[in-house]
Amino acid sequence: MAIILVVEDDALIRMVAEMMIQDWGHETLSASDEDEALAILRSSQRIDALFTDIYLKASVLGGCNLASQAIALRPQLRVLYTTGNSPTEKMTALFVAGAHCLGKPYTQQQLQDSVAEMLAT
């Protein structure tokens, strides 16, 4: 069982994603933007993985910036990105090492597989 921080600006998508992840026995923490997520990351809360949307509110590559800062704070953190856009070279160049990316819309099965893959690495 892992503790996963879910960062997604759309409340409904975030809720469904958390529900899907909790179904497999994991715990979730949630944030709607970079600042909220960083506040949690800076706390002493145990976090095993970060699952973040790349496009966060006004910031087109907000999730990429967030993950880089998150890794600086917690080098052991695993990262799974999600995006509705086709990943561009500019985008993937910003990915933290060893990170995975899941395209939207993802099914429960796809999210489960990606989370399992992320946690296994």
Binding site: L12, M19, Y55, G84, N85, K104, P105, T107, Q108
Partner: peptide, 27 residues
């Protein structure tokens, strides 16, 4: 390109909501 990305982001998010709601119903 920014507009295309923005529209794509919104459409995919909406489809994600539909897929998520179906997953929720399936439960």
């Amino acid at each position: 390109l920014v507009l295309t990305n923005e529209i794509s982001h919104r459409i995919k998010n909406n489809l994600q909501i539909v897929v998520g709601l179906i997953a929720y119903e399936a439960k």
